[in-house]
Amino acid sequence: MFYPNSPQTSPQLTQIPYGQQYAMMQRQIQQPYHPFATTEPQARLYPYHYQGPIQQEQGGFITQQSTAASPQYVQMRVTPVDQSIMSGYPNQTANGSSSSSFNYNIHPQQQQQQQQQQQQLRHHAMPVGSVPLQDDRYRKQLIVNYLAPDVTSTDLHELFSRFGELDGARIIYDKQTNMSKGYGFVYFCHAEDAKEAVERMSGYEFHGKWLKVGYSTNPLNIVPSNSSPYVHAGSRGAAG
């Protein structure tokens, strides 16, 4: 039997160049792979992502010199942007860049009308829970959420009447099932009393439920100042 490094198959040491006398086997001759043993700084910083320098080929596509990437890492192929796409944008300079302001050559009167329309939209648009300043009635009506099913309009009136005089209180019921929808409205005579009720009743436990109280901004629920107070009856038909 002959071994790869046996004296019968191995040459004389004098015939082997210096430095390879003890590297006779194939696994010894093959050098191990060192990912950080390279002179390129990109490979030292990113050993798993770097795959060699990027070269520009004919046709405008950018390719990489090395083989496919590892399945664990996804390499994105980048193509140059066609400058003709950006030619339609206004205020574009000769080098292809555009300024931040756009001039669509709008007539001054049209621009003024658009600004007025935007101001009107901001004036009428009102986020949930906010209180408008032009109508004091919005500051007097509250919406009470997360009410228990057994709470009546009379219970709601008695709960909030300790903060001040009320114009009314009612629970909203479903017309088909005649069941409470879980929320109601309270109408105060003074805005200061309503503000105190919002601050003190939010998070209050009532009939096993934690109440959420806020201003009601729905104009359909506003009680006119010259109208008669609501009837605080315990029956659902009268309260709904």
Score class of each variant (00 low, 15 high):
P4V: 12
N5T: 08
S6L: 14
Q8H: 12
T14L: 11
Q15K: 08
Q15M: 14
Q21W: 15
Q21K: 02
Y22H: 12
A23D: 07
M25Q: 04
Q30D: 07
Y33L: 05
P35D: 05
P35T: 12
F36D: 06
A37W: 15
A37L: 10
Q42S: 12
R44P: 08
Y46R: 06
Y48A: 09
Y48D: 05
Y48C: 13
Y48N: 04
H49W: 15
Y50M: 15
Q58R: 11
F61T: 03
I62F: 10
T63Y: 14
Q64F: 15
S66Q: 09
S66I: 12
A69C: 07
Y73F: 10
Y73L: 03
Y73D: 01
R77Q: 14
T79I: 15
T79E: 03
P80Y: 14
P80T: 08
V81K: 05
I85P: 07
S87I: 12
G88R: 07
G88F: 14
N95G: 09
S97D: 13
S99Q: 13
S99F: 14
N105L: 15
N105M: 14
H107R: 08
Q112W: 15
Q112V: 12
Q113I: 10
Q114Y: 15
Q115G: 08
Q117F: 12
Q118W: 14
Q119E: 02
Q119P: 07
R122M: 15
R122N: 13
A125W: 14
A125Q: 04
V128W: 12
S130E: 12
S130A: 09
V131Y: 14
V131E: 13
Y138W: 04
R139Q: 03
R139P: 03
R139Y: 15
I143S: 00
V144T: 02
V144I: 14
N145V: 00
A148M: 03
T152E: 08
T154D: 05
H157A: 12
L159I: 04
F160C: 02
F160S: 02
F163E: 01
G164A: 01
I171Y: 06
I171V: 09
D174N: 12
D174A: 02
G182P: 08
Y183V: 00
G184R: 02
G184E: 02
V186D: 01
C189I: 13
H190G: 03
A191D: 01
A197I: 01
R200W: 02
M201H: 01
G203C: 04
F206P: 01
H207R: 09
W210F: 06
G214W: 02
Y215K: 00
P219D: 00
P219T: 01
N221E: 03
V223W: 02
V223P: 06
S225V: 06
N226R: 13
N226W: 12
P229I: 10
Y230G: 05
Y230I: 05
H232P: 08
A233K: 03
R236N: 06
